[in-house]
Each structure stands twice: as structure tokens, then as C-alpha cells.
Deep mutational scan, measured.
Amino acid sequence: MATGGRRGAAAAPLLVAVAALLLGAAGHLYPGEVCPGMDIRNNLTRLHELENCSVIEGHLQILLMFKTRPEDFRDLSFPKLIMITDYLLLFRVYGLESLKDLFPNLTVIRGSRLFFNYALVIFEMVHLKELGLYNLMNITRGSVRIEKNNELCYLATIDWSRILDSVEDNYIVLNKDDNEECGDICPGTAKGKTNCPATVINGQFVERCWTHSHCQKVCPTICKSHGCTAEGLCCHSECLGNCSQPDDPTKCVACRNFYLDGRCVETCPPPYYHFQDWRCVNFSFCQDLHHKCKNSRRQGCHQYVIHNNKCIPECPSGYTMNSSNLLCTPCLGPCPKVCHLLEGEKTIDSVTSAQELRGCTVINGSLIINIRGGNNLAAELEANLGLIEEISGYLKIRRSYALVSLSFFRKLRLIRGETLEIGNYSFYALDNQNLRQLWDWSKHNLTITQGKLFFHYNPKLCLSEIHKMEEVSGTKGRQERNDIALKTNGDQASCENELLKFSYIRTSFDKI
């Protein structure tokens, strides 16, 4: 039985969820670079991206490699990797027998973001014989899940209580170790020597080791999670996991709180800001991140802002960003909400898709409305799209047979046209069989910064309504002859009103 693990408890099935942008060198404390989270699957090609990484700022997932063999891993080693800020997950990587050479110096898994409450997941690794993470000293947050690894031993010899604050939620089941077939031998045991430290858990006094050649490092209890030197002297209180010299914040392997210019500090002093819960960055760093993602459509890219001495992905609820200094300031009234469309555009074809934009005031991208039916549609669209004030790209209304009016965009005031449909149009209306009105132009103002209007096959939309939009939106004169079809717009509506004058002759039985 794995020490510190839980057996036999019912657990939810383990679901495996399925960018080499360097964020800056980590400095003297770390020998390499800070790398983003990685999802490495199918083959070993991307694994080489770990070569210079000291910190993975995010998670590391290595999974679904069915053609790899043990010899493929023999020359692979990433000794610079010290810390993973989120979680480490391995799933069905064939041929991998140990992690001792792959990650010989991995010391800390912070667990800032977890995989279903777990910071370390080893699942269905069919050839893994031992973990071998002999320098792993601290899992700051989260638990361990090690399950269905039929060859995995050296679990009962690990004292997880020396690595985690609590072992109650560890789930370590259905491994070879369960069948008591392992016969784990710690260093020196074969020669009758006791080389590794022994600890007591559940009444068992057991030597602690990761492999037959690597003991588990056990520091004096007084050192807590700070770690200790090879001689057993406690590291500085700002260290986490390990250090090369005692009581020196510049000799830590990793930091308990924050890293700044080669030393570990309790908090980031001005003019620095907390970033990702582990390091200090200056304003320029946060500003660069903001600008890199301002026009990016890459998933996970955030326009970072500053709030409460932190550089964070977005302002919290009730705050909006001051564009001059990136500071989050309290909103006066309802907060603006910028919604970034991942692929640059979004099609609204149902109430469900409209709900995804609920509360958005600025759309960074283009909207395509293609709704053919739905219950209580006008009210639903207004509830979900009615706060949109600005669209950076274009607005396209296409084959939306259920629409009679666009009044559900009740606050839309600006279409920038930074991206144009077919390279020309910022407003595009095609084949809307029941569209009769755009907006009530006596109450609604709309500016279209650039781009043209396109109207074709809107049989109940009168040309007068379209011409009014040209005047109000500032697009009059931009359109070419064929942009607004004269014969297919309003051709099934009563669009022309003329005053009919009647004269009559009164007659009676005795007068003409």
C-alpha cells in the first residue's frame, strides 16, 4: 500500500482533458527560462521544448504516446526543470519506465491550478516501474492521483506527508504495488545497510526511497516546507523545498512566496507586481503582455491589467481597466465587458449561442446573426445582446428569417469595421425574408467608422429604411451602385405612401 494514499474509496472516473512563447529569463536562482504550460502528445517531438525550461508557468501534460519505446527515452533528460506552477499529468506514455532521468531536479509542483483537485496525476502508464522524482520536495496545493499503472512499484516507500501538507485526498490505487509483488529495495538494503531515512506512518517504520538508488530526502521537522541542505541544516524561511546553503534567500532552489532578481522575498516591493503567484514583474512586463494579447485571437491570451499590486489576466467583477495605466478602477454604474472572439468572429444561430455573449459591452471581433427560429426570440436576444455598444469588426445579418427588427441591439452605437466582410463591408444584410426595420432612427444613433453597407434580398425592408441608415451611420456616399439592390429590397412591402385627393359631386333626387 502506498504510504499516505487512500484505498478502496469510491472515486469519480478520471477524465483526461485534452506555445513556446518565453516569458522571460528567471535569473540567477533558476538555471534556465520560464516556459508556458505545455500539452505534449502523440510523439516526442515537442518534448524537446523543455530543454531550457527551469519553470513551467502553467501545467505540463505528457500523454497518448503509443509508439514510443524505452530506448526512445534513454537520452532524454531535462535537468534544468525545477518547478511547475500548476500540475504534472502523465497518461498512456508507452515505453517510459521512470522519471528519474527525465526530470531529475523537479523540486516543486505548486498546484496553482489543479487537474480535478490533483497536482500530480500518473494514470495508465503501462510501462512505468517507478516514479523516480527523487528531488520532489513540495506539492504546495492539491493532491496526488496514481492509478492503474500495472508495473509501478516504489510507492509504499514514499512518505507523501513530507511532500504535501495533507495526504487525506491522495488516491493511489490499482498499481502493481497493490499486489505486494514489488519487493522494493532501498539503497544499501541488499548489503544489509540502512542508507535512507525511515519514518513512521500508520504504525509502520519504513525506509523512504524513490528507487533502488535514490533515497527520499527527509528534512528535520523544524525546517517545515522550506527544505534543508545535504547536511540537514534548514533553508531560509522564504525558500521552498530545498537550498544549497542554509538561511540564505539567494540560495533557495525555489521560493515559498515570490522570486525577485535572484532572491526569494515575502512580497513584491514597489515598483514590482505579483505575477502568477510566484514571481515579481515590473510595469513594462505587464504592459507588454497586455499589448501582445490586445489584437491576438490565441486562446488563453489575456490583456493583463494591474489590481491590488498584482498583474492579473482581467479586472475583477465591479472594476474596469483604465487604459492609460492598466489599473483596475471601480465602475460607475454597470461595468464594461470586452469579449474577445477566439477566431475573430462568432455566429449567433440560437439563443444558446447568444447567451455566451451575455453582459458583453464591447465585441472584439465580428458578429454573424443567422437565426431561423426560436421561442420568445426578441426578448431572449435583447437579454443577451442588448448591452453590446461596440463591435470592432463587422455585423452580418444573414438568412435570419425569424427577425423582424434589429432593435434587440438596443445599445449598439459603434461598428468600427477594423475587419470587413469580403474585404469591403462593415454591415452586411443578406436574404432576411421578414426583416422590416433596422432601428427606430428617431431614437437610435449608430456610427460606422469604416467599410460599406450591403443589402440584398431583404424583400420587406424598404429602401427608405436603408437610406436612413446611410445618413445616420455616416456611410452615405461610400456605397457603390450594386451594394444596395434596388429590386430585391422592399419588393414585397408597401414602401411608397402617396396622399390621394378626392373630389365629389353631391346629387339628390331633384338636383344634379
Rank of each mutant, 00 (worst) to 15 (best):
R208K: 07
D184W: 06
L332I: 09
P316L: 11
R263V: 13
H59Y: 14
L155H: 01
F258G: 04
L233N: 13
Q287K: 06
L136V: 07
L152C: 05
Y154N: 07
N138R: 15
C228Y: 04
C215L: 03
R145S: 04
C182T: 01
K176G: 15
T199V: 11
C239N: 00
T229H: 08
D86C: 15
Y118V: 15
F116R: 01
N195H: 06
L106F: 02
M83G: 11
I40N: 02
K193T: 09
V167H: 11
V121H: 04
P336T: 15
L50G: 02
H290Q: 15
S143Y: 03
D101T: 08
K193C: 13
P270N: 15
S324H: 08
T68K: 07
D75W: 05
I185W: 14
I82Q: 05
C196V: 03
S77R: 11
C286Y: 03
E231F: 15
T45F: 09
C209T: 00
Q299T: 15
F103W: 06
I163Q: 01
I146L: 13
C182R: 01
L106W: 01
A119D: 00
S324Y: 03
N322Q: 10
H307N: 15
S323K: 06
L60P: 00
W278Q: 07
C268P: 00
K251L: 11
C209M: 01
P104A: 03
Y154K: 05
F258R: 07
T107M: 05
R279L: 05
I185H: 12
Y171R: 00
I122K: 00
Q303E: 09
F205T: 02
C331V: 09
C315Q: 01
G232R: 01
E181P: 05
I163L: 09
P104T: 02
F275C: 01
S161E: 09
R162P: 10
E71S: 13
F91S: 02
C186R: 01
E151R: 06
I172L: 07
E238L: 08
F283Q: 04
N105K: 08
D277R: 08
C234R: 00
H302Y: 13
R46S: 15
Q299D: 05
N195Y: 09
D169I: 06
C328D: 00
G232I: 02
C219S: 02
C280T: 00
D72G: 13
S112Y: 12
N117C: 05
E33L: 11
K176A: 15
S225T: 12
S98I: 01
C243S: 01
M137W: 06
L88F: 12
Q61K: 15
I222V: 13
G203Q: 13
T199K: 05
V173Y: 11
P336Y: 13
W210F: 01
E33P: 12
R263D: 14
M125Q: 10
V121K: 00
C182I: 01
I82V: 10
H236W: 02
C335V: 03
Y272W: 07
A119K: 00
T85E: 03
G183P: 13
V108C: 10
L136S: 00
N309W: 09
N195E: 13
T68M: 07
C311S: 01
D86I: 02
I158E: 01
V305C: 15
N42H: 03
L90C: 15
G262H: 10
A119N: 03
V108I: 02
K129R: 11
L50F: 09
S213N: 13
K191A: 08
S244W: 09
S143I: 08
G32N: 06
H307E: 09
H59Q: 14
N117W: 14
V305Y: 03
C243L: 00
C280W: 00
H236R: 02
G95V: 02
M321E: 02
L102M: 15
T329A: 14
F103Q: 00
P36E: 12
I109M: 02
S143W: 08
R256D: 06
C268S: 00
R145E: 01
K80D: 02
N175V: 01
H302K: 15
A156E: 08
F258K: 15
R162S: 07
P70W: 07
R256A: 07
N308R: 10
I306D: 15
L164W: 02
V93F: 09
P316H: 13
N257F: 07
P270Q: 08
V200A: 05
D75F: 13
R69M: 06
T85K: 09
D86L: 01
W210G: 01
I139S: 00
N138M: 13
C228R: 01
L289M: 05
L50N: 02
K310Y: 09
G37Y: 10
C215H: 01
L89F: 03
E314H: 02
G188V: 05
K148G: 04
K100A: 13
H236L: 02
R162M: 10
Q303G: 10
N117K: 03
S237E: 05
E33F: 02
L44C: 05
N322E: 00
I40T: 13
Q287P: 02
K100Y: 10
L136W: 00
T229N: 13
H307V: 07
S166M: 09
E130C: 06
L332N: 05
D178E: 09
T157H: 06
L164H: 11
N308Q: 13
G132F: 00
P70T: 10
Y272M: 05
P249E: 08
M83I: 14
L260F: 12
L96K: 00
H307G: 13
Y118P: 00
C53S: 01
I122S: 08
C335F: 04
P313R: 11
S237F: 12
P249W: 14
F91R: 02
W160S: 00
C280Q: 01
S225E: 06
E147V: 11
D86Y: 03
F285S: 06
E147H: 04
C335G: 02
T221P: 03
G183N: 11
R110W: 07
G262P: 05
C239V: 02
N242H: 12
P36T: 13
D177S: 04
L99N: 01
I40L: 13
V55D: 00
E49D: 06
H212L: 11
C196P: 01
V200G: 12
Y118N: 05
T140K: 08
N202K: 04
P269A: 12
D277P: 05
C228T: 00
I185Y: 12
K310A: 10
T45W: 13
H290M: 09
T68V: 05
C223K: 00
N43C: 06
L63S: 03
I122G: 01
S98C: 06
R74Q: 05
G37C: 06
C235Q: 00
Y134V: 12
I306M: 05
G333N: 11
V265L: 09
T267A: 14
M65H: 10
L76M: 05
C268Q: 00
R145V: 02
N195R: 06
K217A: 09
